[in-house]
C-alpha cells in the first residue's frame, strides 16, 4: 500500500479526526441527494462517499517495523495485525483467531511480546515492532529459528511465527528456568499440530546456548 504523509497530529486532545462530525453531516446531505433516482447522482455519491470517508476517517501512523520506518494513514479501527499483513505485506505474522485466544499473531512491540490482533495500530504509533521477518540477520537465522528447524518444532508452520516470537521473548523474560515453566509461559501460543514437546526442546537448547 502507498505510504502517505501524515496530515493530522495524533497527540493531544480532539485535534485528530474531530472533523468527522462535519463529515457525517455532509454524508447525510449526500444520502439525501442519493434518494433522487438517477445513475449520475448515484455514481457521484459513491465516489464522494469513498473519498470523504477515506480522507476524514484515517489518521497518521508512524511505525518502525524490523528497522524500517513506515508512515501510513489508517482508520482507527485497524489493528496492528492487519497493518502488518494487509498494508505492509508482512504476512509472516499470522491470524489464527483475531481475538487474543491463540497467539499466532505474536509480535514484539518495543521488545515486549503482544497479541497484535488486539492492539489497535494507532496505539503503537511511534513504536518499534519486530516480526518474524525481522528476526534473522540477512541469511543468518536467529538461534531460535535454527533450533525450531533442528527439533522440528512445527508441522503445518502456521503457528510457528508466533511460537518463535514468544520463545525469543520468553528467554528475555527469564521464565525458562524449568520445563514446567517453559510450558506454562509458552501456553499463550496454541499449536494444533501438537508440536509442543519439540518446541520446548528447541527453547531449552537455545537457552543452553548449544545452537
Amino acid at each position: 500500500m502507498s505510504t502517505t504523509k501524515p496530515c493530522t497530529p495524533t497527540d493531544g486532545e480532539d485535534n485528530s479526526n474531530g472533523t468527522r462530525r462535519d463529515f457525517l453531516k455532509q454524508t447525510s446531505l449526500l444520502t439525501a441527494i442519493a434518494l433522487t433516482p438517477g445513475t449520475v447522482v448515484k455514481a457521484a455519491e459513491n465516489q464522494w462517499d469513498e473519498k470523504l470517508a477515506g480522507v476524514f476517517e484515517k489518521q497518521a501512523l508512524h511505525l518502525e517495523v524490523n528497522g524500517v520506518k513506515h508512515e501510513l494513514m489508517v482508520e482507527p479501527r485497524v489493528t496492528l495485525l492487519e497493518v502488518l499483513r494487509e498494508y505492509l505485506d508482512l504476512t509472516g505474522t499470522k491470524k489464527g483467531c483475531d481475538r487474543g485466544q491463540c497467539g499466532a499473531c505474536t509480535v514484539h512491540v518495543n521488545g515486549v511480546r503482544v497479541n497484535s490482533c488486539l492492539s489497535l495500530a494507532l496505539t503503537n504509533d511511534g513504536k518499534k515492532i519486530t516480526t518474524i521477518e525481522g528476526l534473522a540477520k540477512e541469511e543468518e537465522l536467529h538461534p531460535m529459528q535454527e533450533a525450531f528447524i533442528k527439533h522440528d518444532g512445527f508441522q503445518c508452520g502456521y503457528c510457528t511465527s508466533g511460537q518463535i516470537m514468544s520463545a525469543v521473548a520468553l528467554l528475555k523474560e527469564g521464565h525458562s528456568g524449568s520445563e514446567t515453566e517453559i510450558r506454562e509461559f509458552m501456553s499463550g501460543n496454541i499449536c494444533r499440530c501438537g508440536a509442543y514437546p519439540n518446541i520446548v526442546k528447541a527453547i531449552q537448547e537455545v537457552k543452553g546456548g548449544m545452537v
Partner: peptide, 21 residues
C-alpha cells in the same frame, strides 16, 4: 531429515492461501 521447507516456515516466508499479494 529436517524439513525441506523449514526455513520458509521459521522466517515467515511460507505463503498460505490468504497471503498472496
Amino acid at each position: 531429515l529436517s524439513r525441506v521447507d523449514g526455513r520458509l516456515k521459521v522466517t515467515g516466508g511460507a505463503k498460505y492461501s490468504g497471503e498472496y499479494k
